[in-house]
Amino acid sequence: MRALLAIGLSALISLLSPSIAFAADAAHGAQVFSANCAACHIGGGNVVNGQRTLQQDDLKAYLANYNDGHEEAIAYQVTNGKNGMPAFGGKLSSDDIADVAAYVESQSVNGWA
């Protein structure tokens, strides 16, 4: 009986409490960026299209839904690619993509200094 009550209480708490989101690991994202992105985006630049950098103002200007969720918009771009940027959804795990998005966002906020 106690076990059944504990299971029921646990289920109720999980339904009523907000979801626990695991924070992305920007330090790991730096490693993923270095291995997969830096060839085109070293220092937050863009060797393919110099107007599409990873500076925050540029991200705001050309990433869909950036203002609704910075890291989510970056992760979408990394996953799906667009124009000259290849899609990395088939190459990187979703955790790697979340981590690199966290890294890019943190760097863009700091001006890639």
Results as ranks from 00 to 15, higher is better:
residue 70 H to F: 07
residue 73 A to C: 06
residue 47 V to L: 13
residue 42 I to D: 15
residue 97 I to A: 12
residue 73 A to D: 09
residue 37 C to F: 04
residue 1 M to N: 05
residue 46 N to I: 07
residue 67 N to F: 09
residue 40 C to S: 08
residue 15 L to D: 02
residue 30 A to N: 10
residue 67 N to W: 02
residue 53 T to E: 06
residue 86 P to T: 03
residue 20 I to L: 12
residue 71 E to Y: 08
residue 102 A to I: 03
residue 8 G to Q: 04
residue 9 L to F: 05
residue 41 H to L: 06
residue 82 K to A: 15
residue 43 G to Q: 01
residue 17 S to E: 11
residue 23 A to H: 10
residue 7 I to L: 14
residue 108 S to D: 02
residue 96 D to K: 04
residue 32 V to L: 05
residue 61 A to K: 15
residue 68 D to V: 06
residue 95 D to S: 15
residue 101 A to M: 09
residue 35 A to D: 14
residue 10 S to F: 13
residue 48 V to M: 11
residue 57 D to Q: 13
residue 19 S to W: 04
residue 61 A to S: 13
residue 102 A to W: 08
residue 35 A to M: 10
residue 15 L to C: 14
residue 11 A to C: 00
residue 23 A to P: 13
residue 84 G to K: 04
residue 41 H to I: 11
residue 95 D to N: 06
residue 22 F to S: 07
residue 43 G to R: 08
residue 54 L to M: 13
residue 50 G to N: 12
residue 90 G to S: 09
residue 108 S to A: 15
residue 82 K to Q: 12
residue 42 I to R: 14
residue 17 S to C: 12
residue 83 N to M: 09
residue 41 H to T: 09
residue 42 I to P: 03
residue 74 I to F: 00
residue 97 I to N: 00
residue 48 V to H: 11
residue 26 A to D: 12
residue 91 K to I: 14
residue 36 N to Q: 05
residue 97 I to P: 11
residue 84 G to S: 12
residue 49 N to I: 14
residue 70 H to E: 15
residue 12 L to E: 07
residue 85 M to L: 00
residue 13 I to D: 01
residue 15 L to F: 14
residue 63 L to Y: 01
residue 92 L to V: 09
residue 25 D to Q: 03
residue 62 Y to G: 07
residue 97 I to Y: 00
residue 30 A to W: 07
residue 20 I to P: 09
residue 85 M to K: 05
residue 69 G to K: 04
residue 53 T to M: 13
residue 70 H to Q: 15
residue 51 Q to I: 12
residue 21 A to T: 13
residue 39 A to W: 10
residue 45 G to D: 11
residue 56 Q to K: 13
residue 4 L to S: 02
residue 105 E to P: 01
residue 68 D to I: 03
residue 78 V to L: 02
residue 99 D to E: 09
residue 5 L to P: 05
residue 103 Y to T: 13
residue 57 D to H: 11
residue 10 S to T: 14
residue 27 A to G: 06
residue 15 L to G: 02
residue 6 A to D: 05
residue 7 I to G: 12
residue 87 A to K: 05
residue 100 V to W: 11
residue 21 A to D: 08
residue 32 V to A: 03
residue 90 G to H: 01
residue 16 L to S: 13
residue 104 V to W: 10
residue 15 L to N: 09
